[in-house]
Structures are given as C-alpha cells and as structure tokens.
C-alpha cells in the first residue's frame, strides 16, 4: 500500500514502478502509437547489424523483434540423394492412380493425355478383401474389360467357386445395407449417378495389373453374379 502512494506522484501510474524493474528516474519506454509492421523487416535489420558487427551488441537487444538470420541448410551427398528420392516419389504419387481426382477432371480429355508419362500407374484396383462392403465399388461394365482374365482364371474352377460363394455372401450383406441407407438418407439417387460416372472413367483407363488383380478379378466375377 505504501508503494502505491508513492507511485502516484510524478508518473501518473497507480503502482510502484520499481516493481516492474525500472529504476527510479529511469526513462520508461516510449508509448507505441502505431501497429507493428506485418512483416518486421528482417533483412534490413540484418544488414545494419552486419555493418556494425560487434560494437553494438548491447543495443541489438532493444531492436524488436528478434533479428536472427536463417542458418544455411545442411548439405551432403546423403541429403541430396534423399531429396531426389523424395521428389521422385512425390511425382510418382501424383501421376499414380492413388491421386484421387474429381470425376470431371478425368472426363475432360486433354490432347496431352497421350503424352502423359507414367500412365501405367493411372489405375488401380482396391483389394476388396480388406475393405468394408460399403466401400466396394460396383462395376457393371467392367466385365468387358476383364473378360480375358476371367477365362484365364477359370482354369482353376473349383477354387473359384468357393470364393464366389464367399463373396456372394458379402454382396448380399451389402445389398441389404444399401436398402437401409436408401430409406434413411435418400442419397441413393446421387450415388447411382456417381457410379455411372465411375464406370465411364474406369472404362477409359488402360488396364493395369498392379498386383491386386487377383482379388479384383474375383470381385468382378462376383459383381456380375450378384447383379444379374
């Protein structure tokens, strides 16, 4: 309380200025009357600092904000190799079928498409086994595309049949669920439309066996059975 009384005197603040760490008689910092710049100019201050070098270390402290320079990045053969791998990987990803594109983009055929590199990765078939049934795409027209494969696979008829049964079950479940959703959400209209779209685009793409062919083929077989 005593401090309060004293503080009121000269400066017009209601507390003892000593408590803020200002010595008696020391000048208080000037009031800020304008907003700070959006980007406090780092470069300029840096230039000044460079010119003055050591003899102003003290006053550097009072230059707000901090004026440290960005350190140069480390470089080594290892690092440049990893960066090359990184950029290569990124480009590959972008050109691959994993890049989810809006349907419209795909429909719009560009003349340059035929010059596109890495088109081999343009499509991929999800492994339906690891997906929940609500994500399984339905592909009516796909049959045409994959028929040659089917004949090849039919060599092993017994085994196929077994798996067909298994998948029939899955698809049955699927249908039931679809039914429910139709009632609940009423989005089914849109969904059907979407799927038409998908088939169009998938049809356009060159077929690429990227490894999921086994599961994928199976599924196409089953789709056929389930739908007709």
């Amino acid at each position: 309380m005593a401090g309060r009384g004293r503080g009121r005197g000269g400066r017009g603040v209601s507390f003892n200025i000593d408590q803020l760490g200002f010595g008696r008689g020391e000048a208080l910092p000037k009031a800020t009357l304008q907003p700070p710049p959006t980007f406090p100019n780092v470069t300029q201050v840096d230039k000044i600092l460079k010119k003055l070098e050591f003899d102003l270390t003290d006053s550097v402290l009072y230059l707000q904000p901090l004026t440290q320079q960005v350190h140069p990045l480390q470089t080594s053969e290892e690092i440049s190799y990893i960066i090359a791998v990184k950029q290569n990987f990124r480009n590959k990803m972008r050109e691959s079928g994993y890049n989810v594109l809006a349907e419209k983009d795909k429909c719009l055929k560009k003349y340059s498409d035929k010059y596109q590199l890495g088109i081999q990765n343009g499509s991929w078939e999800p492994n339906l086994k690891i997906l929940p049934s609500e994500l399984h795409p339905k592909k009516k027209k796909m049959r045409k595309m994959v028929k040659p494969n089917i004949t090849k696979l039919k060599l092993d008829a017994d085994k196929k049949l077994k798996e067909l049964e298994e998948f029939e079950k899955v698809n049955d479940d699927d249908d039931v669920e679809e039914e429910e959703k139709k009632n609940e959400e009423g989005i089914i209209e849109e969904e059907e439309y979407d799927e038409e779209d998908l088939e169009e685009t998938d049809y356009n793409m060159t077929y690429f066996d990227n490894g999921e062919s086994y599961g994928g083929d199976d599924d196409d077989d089953l789709d056929e059975d389930a739908l007709y």
Partner: peptide, 15 residues
C-alpha cells in the same frame, strides 16, 4: 460426392 469419398477412403485404407 459419396463416390469420391469412397475412393478417398479406400485409398487411405490401402495405405
């Protein structure tokens, strides 16, 4: 759209 989302989801699941 549902189909796009589906596509995203199975891509994510695959990865």
């Amino acid at each position: 759209r549902i189909l796009t989302v589906k596509k995203c989801l199975y891509t994510f699941i695959h990865h």
